[in-house]
Design a protein around this nucleic acid. Sequence first.
DNA 1: ACTCGTTATATTTATAGATACATAACGATT
DNA 2: AATCGTTATGTATCTATAAATATAACGAGT
Lengths: 111, 111
Amino acid sequence: MNYKIKSKIWIETEGDILLGKGRVNLLNAIENTGSLSKAAKQLGMSYKKAWSLTQAMNERAKKPVIIMSVGGKGGGGAKLTSYGKSLINTFVTINENCNIFLETQLTKTSL
Amino acid sequence: MNYKIKSKIWIETEGDILLGKGRVNLLNAIENTGSLSKAAKQLGMSYKKAWSLTQAMNERAKKPVIIMSVGGKGGGGAKLTSYGKSLINTFVTINENCNIFLETQLTKTSL
DNA sequence: ACTCGTTATATTTATAGATACATAACGATT
DNA sequence: AATCGTTATGTATCTATAAATATAACGAGT
């Protein structure tokens, strides 16, 4: 019966969302499957939504995040750039640090 | 053209939201107006939504947050308890601290 | 008993966001 | 040029949440 403090964090650029938890999940699924459609299916997300998220991320990030290829052997695929992987890593660690920080902040109070 | 990190925080009890930014705004408006309907109008929120938020807060908090009175002189009104006021204060300060924390975390990275 | 402005509550309507569906485009391989 | 599995993109349909609307209940004061 105690209070818990929760948070959501995300990274913006010029007022638009670049990265949040959902997009990080998508990036991880892309890395695991090598395909946008398979990643979407794995997450129970529509392909269209996954696709528009990748567009938004590539458009807004300082460097490309995902490389998409159409046609050819296997029909195509999607891969993360090394910049995309570092985006995942920093987001995850900051998120963890934030949760720890908030928990200690709350325990200092007398609610 | 730099990244900014944003966050939303809230306090839960047993999986249910007790307090977030919107509810804090509502509590402030109640304190200022002394009335739930006026507070809702001030925030551009429907009365019904404001009312159900107060129910949720009073139900989930360890102590009452808002005292409502019906009928009588002036028709009734709503007031914050001192516990409600302390809820506002701690939420606001933790929120500010969190923003500062996240900003310093992001500047440490090389994105 | 009547008035007043408020709280209390149910029902209906709107709106936005996601989802489903459909189809085109792509290009290496055969 | 036919095939294949993927990316690319538009359109239509749900659906869940919020908002609007309507009405009842309340109780101190007159």
